[in-house]
Design a protein around this nucleic acid. Structure first.
Lengths: 232, 232
DNA sequence: AAGTGGTCTAGACCACAAA
DNA sequence: TTGTGGTCTAGACCACTTG
């Protein structure tokens, strides 16, 4: 950056300090961009960059003509990255393994799956089940419904999991995510190597491309699993 | 914006289209900012804004001198907002209620809590338990340890939950978040009005200010609760 | 050494919302 | 009507990283 100039990061830091120290009170109007530019001896563009960033982070609320106010209840956010399960396991320093349990085109699609994927006609879906292992022990059970219009039947998921194949080949999907707890029934207990009735952490995801429904998946994690992240 | 000019949003959209349509292949170098500015007939600043935004969203990887590449495995993100439980309940269209269950300064702090809050000396912590209700039924059990150096004993949590008080009064905290499943024991089953052994969705949060450990809380949600969000 | 993205400037016009 | 933030421009220098 130019010598002697004030960076937008340092301006952001100073503004954040004033917010945290309540020099600028919650709900209160702060000076406008031109005034702050003069105070800090920089261009208005630089002030704009700093305040825009703080607004994106939830600290400020900005409106044309209305000015900039300190947010009354700043919304804190927790961000979870949707990654490949293999990479999650390896990031824990454990050996990764994968077993394909079943793969069939199933005409009997549960109504809930049909609705979640917003399918109109009674399209047959492909059902793929696989077990992800960490150090040889069950880590995550993947139960997935695939739209055959998107993933052809020639694609096999015995060597590479459907999870990894989809992330690598259809990365630009959007969708929904739902987290919940489920109690292990006899079948789950056997697969996940835990007692019947164990509480298991679970996740449903549905993903869509711009034009198609792609997949609905239920991931059930082994006993004791925790999904962790930072707040900010 | 100026008439006839190309907005950074439309430039971003066009670049994203090229990525999704694989006109720019994963891992491949795309034209540099100056070239794109010429192609689109705009200033380099505008190109920079668009590409920087795509990089923040995980679609591109940028390096000085190294140029800009399409990300090999774009990282999708799910964002959860940390809100006030009362507002969560009201957003569902249900009536909110709150009951304080217990509030005492407890010298016997579990080692796990002590460690999570990174406390050095054996500080006594305040322990507050409260039950959040939706339409009169148990919605979320809040079990919280508070640092008395941050929240004085004069602050009562019978009318307002500790959750809401903290979000309103100490909003600028960072911390950690952990999601998991827990099986209801006899005490939990009674409080949450469910069968013993029911799998319950649960969340641990620890929060810190710049200078202090503030609180460690365990939130246990009622049977059937799902935490939902969008991908993108 | 050289090329690329990162940032700052000064000025301008515009879009939106409040008065 | 007016004030505020949102954005674009053209130019400049700088920092980082690669060769």
């Amino acid at each position: 950056m130019k010598k002697g100039a004030i960076s937008w990061q340092s301006l952001r830091a100073e503004a954040l300090r004033r917010i945290c120290d309540q020099e600028w009170l919650p709900g209160e109007l702060i000076p406008n961009e031109a005034e702050l530019a003069q105070e800090f001896g920089c261009a208005r563009t630089t002030v704009n960059r700093a305040l825009r960033d703080l607004a994106e982070s939830g600290y400020l609320e900005r409106k044309r003509k209305g000015g900039t106010r300190v947010a009354l209840t700043p919304v804190r956010k927790a961000i979870f990255e949707i990654s490949i399960i293999r990479q999650d396991v390896e990031a824990r320093g454990q050996d990764y393994g994968y077993t394909l349990l079943s793969d069939r085109c199933d005409a009997e699609v549960p109504a809930s799956v049909h609705a979640a994927l917003r399918l109109k006609s009674a399209v047959p879906l492909r059902h793929v089940c696989g077990l992800h292992l960490a150090d040889g022990r069950p880590f995550c059970l993947e139960q997935r419904w695939l739209n055959p219009a998107v993933v052809g039947p020639e694609q096999k998921f015995d060597a590479i999991s459907a999870n990894e194949w989809l992330v690598r080949n259809l990365p630009f999907a959007h969708g929904t995510l739902s987290l919940y707890a489920v109690s292990a029934d006899a079948r789950l207990a056997q697969i996940m190597d835990c007692a019947v009735g164990t509480a298991l952490f679970s996740m449903d995801r549905t993903t869509f491309s711009d034009t198609h429904s792609i997949t609905a998946v239920t991931l059930i994690y082994g006993s004791g699993f925790r999904m962790e992240t930072d707040i900010n």
